[in-house]
Amino acid sequence: MNYLKHIGKYFIMLKQVFRKPQKWSVFREVLFREIEDLGLKSMGIIMFISFFVGGVVAIQTAMNIESPFIPKYLIGFAAKRSMILEFAPTFMSIILAGKVGSYIASSIGTMRVTEQIDALEVMGINSLNYLILPKIIAALFFYPLLILLAMFLGILGGYYAGILTDLFYSEDYIYGIQLDFDPYYIKYALTKTVVFAFVIATIPAYHGYYVKGGSLEVGRASTQAVVWTSIVIILLNYFLTQMILG
């Protein structure tokens, strides 16, 4: 029953979030700040992880191909497919859920326990709209770009892994990544990313906004936010894959 209460409260929150901003110039200012905080500041970690994940995928695939009848270009093909379909959109979203989710929950939670949200409300500002809508827009706008970057760097990581380990030839790898390229998979990955971006911005915001107590509760809310965001991403990933590719 408690879960249903939270789900209901979450949707009621969203109703308040999706209102017209009270002042567009202030909204624009906050939006740019959020793009920097949620997007640009996440670029480093995403670039680092995706590059090495791509490398590991290529090495693992190469080491598991023992039969001489399986062509080596399949390494590039497998690295490309796994990066585009799963590692970039889902795995990177889980990383973002941890990094950005905890930041959103703790920053909004701290604002709640230090009465900064009350201060907004007393001024007559719709605090949900002011605090959360720019985060949603920033995530929806920026995360697809981050995921595209992750796809590219993951595939590039696989290429360099081949060069460094001599497990496969770069020509085979390049042939493999060009083989049977279907742009629909990019569309599928970006569709998932947009949904995950929404989840990453809103679930932690919900946990932070409704926190009660002090710093300990803010910490708990932050952990809860990351856990629930990850669970929802994994579940949605399953359903979206069924719906789009099934």
Binding site: T114, E115, Q116, A119, V122, G124
Partner: peptide
């Protein structure tokens, strides 16, 4: 409109960090 006529000083200040 009424809230614009209200000023509030919170216990901890509630300044935006």
């Amino acid at each position: 409109q009424l809230r614009k006529e209200i000023g509030m000083v919170f216990q901890g200040g509630a300044l935006y960090d």
